[in-house]
């Protein structure tokens, strides 16, 4: 029997894990000194999407909630930042505000879905529908009457000229490409580490217990709805952060942030990388994004078709995703070696 999800999340990370994290952090600090700006931009957007994948991977793989709608909070975060920053001329407070608005919305949406005790499959469908409603609504705001403060929403065309983040200690100049690289890399690494540590806490272990058997957890005295809502809002916050960073990276937000294509891509990243780990969604995002960029440059043309085939192969051959499969293979080899040692 292959467990569908990982069961070992509760163990605190070991020293080697901290060393690897430290090495990666160091590599990130050094990277801009060695690679050109184009690669920094490519990596930054992969980090932004990796955050989005993390938000879904955490919710699906650990809390057992399959939300197709992490793009709701991604898009809301991006739009909220654009509107707030353009209206106020500030960037720091809008950054915070753009996190709070999607978080509040995820609490509201999550409350109705989770306290209404709708089944898992309806939760998935509801989230998908809500993100499509956002997309359609924003697409239809091209008229001049759709203005928030002094900012026109512009419908299909999105909002251009979203200001970059200015930091007081940088004399009010917006973040450079290098700065955005540091910001996105740091955010991704911090969120990854925070989630990994969260899984060892009482909250983390309880949501895994709820994923395994919600009724039993209730009979043990846990208010499972509160824990599920907590996980949903946390994931919403991570998706919102990803959306704000996206707006900072491209200085642009558009209704595509909410659309089906974007929502489906998140699912693909998570499935390819492996939902039963946190590192899986990050690698899945990197691999899929890199592959589609590469397919675009060599002129294959049918990028979507090729990606679709890749996804099907993964679902059929590596149902647990890339990283857990590699982990299994390592474990198998190690047991084989250990077993041979024991019989000798």
């Amino acid at each position: 029997m292959i467990p569908e999800f990982s069961a070992t999340a509760a163990r605190p990370p070991k020293a080697w894990w901290w060393s690897v994290i430290a090495l990666i952090a160091l590599a990130m600090v050094m990277l801009p000194y060695y690679v050109d700006i184009a690669l920094q931009l490519d990596l930054s957007i992969i980090f932004v999407f990796a955050l989005l994948a993390l938000s879904m991977g955490f919710l699906w793989g650990y809390a057992g909630i399959l939300s197709f709608g992490q793009t709701i909070f991604f898009g809301l975060g991006g739009y909220a930042y654009a509107v707030l920053a353009l209206n106020t001329g500030m960037t720091g407070l809008p950054f915070l505000g753009a996190l709070l608005i999607p978080v509040a919305f995820s609490a509201l949406l999550g409350y109705f879905m989770i306290y209404g005790r709708i089944s898992d499959i309806y939760l998935s469908v509801t989230t998908l529908v809500v993100t499509l409603i956002f997309e359609k609504s924003i697409r239809s705001t091209s008229g001049p009457e759709y203005v928030i403060g002094s900012v026109r929403l512009n419908g299909q065309n999105g909002i251009p000229g979203v200001p970059g983040l200015t930091l007081p200690w940088l004399d009010g100049a917006p973040l450079s490409i290098e700065g955005v690289f540091y910001l996105t890399a740091g955010a991704m690494l911090l969120v990854y580490v925070a989630l990994r540590l969260l899984l060892t806490t009482r909250f983390g272990r309880v949501i895994v217990g709820i994923r395994e058997n919600e009724r039993r957890m209730e009979l043990l005295g846990y208010d499972t709805r509160l824990y599920k809502l907590g996980a949903f809002v946390l994931a919403g916050g991570i998706a919102a952060l990803s959306g704000v960073l996206y707006a900072l990276w491209g200085n642009f937000v558009a209704p595509e942030m909410f659309n089906l294509n974007q929502a489906a891509q998140v699912v693909i990243w998570v499935i390819v990388g492996g939902r039963s780990t946190l590192i899986g969604p990050i690698f899945g995002t990197g691999i899929v994004q890199y592959t589609s960029n590469w397919l675009g440059t060599v002129g294959v043309g049918q990028v979507t078709l090729v990606l679709g085939i890749v996804l099907m192969v993964f679902v059929l051959v590596f149902p647990r995703g890339l990283l857990p499969t590699i982990g299994d293979a390592f474990g198998y080899v190690r047991r084989r070696v250990a077993g041979r040692g024991a019989t000798r």
Partner: peptide, 23 residues
């Protein structure tokens, strides 16, 4: 319950821990 109603995907230790942590 009549039919074993536990967290099948978790270890015995983890099951007991979750039960104890509710108290």
């Amino acid at each position: 319950n009549q039919v074993p109603d536990v967290m099948n995907g978790l270890s015995v230790r983890e099951n007991l821990w979750l039960a104890a942590a509710s108290r």
